[in-house]
Amino acid sequence: MTRYPRDEFDRVPETSTRQGVHRTVAAARSRGLAPILSVGAFALAVGLVAFLLLPRLGFGPAGGTAMAADKSSATAAASATAQPTATPTAQPTTSPTSDPGSTVAAASSGTTPAPTATAAAVDKTQPVAVYNGTTTAGLAGRVGSTVTSDGWVLGPLGNWTGPRQQTSVVYYNGAAQKANAQELAALLGIATLVDSADFKMPLVVVLGPGYR
């Protein structure tokens, strides 16, 4: 009980049932969604069954068949390449230009074929004259000793009385003495060779300025 007087807000029927509008709307919505959810669950179940069972039963898509065919062809190609292949063996070849008969004959005779071209022989019995065209005393005698030590026959020694020499020269008389002149020039380190008939000697060495 309160100490305030009752008014119109206190007049509530004792037997009345309270009903809210929001409760009626919520119940109607839940009843409307139930069939939709049932259909979605059934469709999901059918999709799972088709995805899991149909490929095992052989009802897969065409793409699966193509992939299986590709796999089988790749396996066949790998097995074909894995097999060993026969490698041709090298056969001994014979040169058409070789003559076995001539080779055997040369080996049995013990002789070697003569060279087609031979170098001109050096004749060290030809006398060599040495003249000193420098101001170094005794140079002709020293070079003469070198010539003799190499096996040459030594000719006249002396000082050069001809025209002034610019360099050392080996003079030789005729083409037959050219090989001798080249050998002598190599021994003495002289680079200039001159074919001249002015000398009575076959080989003449004139030592020019700067020769050591």
Rank of each mutant, 00 (worst) to 15 (best):
R3K: 10
Y4K: 12
R11S: 03
P13T: 03
T17Y: 02
R18T: 09
Q19E: 03
R23I: 05
T24R: 13
A28P: 01
S30M: 04
G32D: 08
V39P: 02
V39T: 12
G40A: 10
G47V: 03
A50I: 03
P55F: 07
R56S: 12
G60Y: 14
A62N: 14
A66L: 09
M67S: 03
A68H: 10
A69E: 07
A74N: 04
T75C: 01
A77K: 14
T81I: 08
T81M: 09
T89W: 02
A90E: 15
Q91T: 12
T93F: 15
T97Q: 03
P100K: 00
P100V: 08
S102G: 07
T103R: 14
A105P: 00
G110Y: 00
T112R: 04
A114Q: 10
A117H: 06
A121Y: 07
A129E: 03
N132G: 05
G133Q: 01
T135L: 14
T135P: 03
L139I: 04
R142L: 02
G144T: 05
G144E: 02
V147Y: 00
G151D: 00
Q165K: 10
T167C: 01
S168N: 07
V169Q: 13
Y171P: 02
A176M: 07
A176V: 14
K178V: 06
N180I: 09
Q182D: 04
Q182F: 02
A186H: 11
L188K: 04
L188T: 11
G189L: 15
G189S: 10
L207K: 10
P209Y: 12
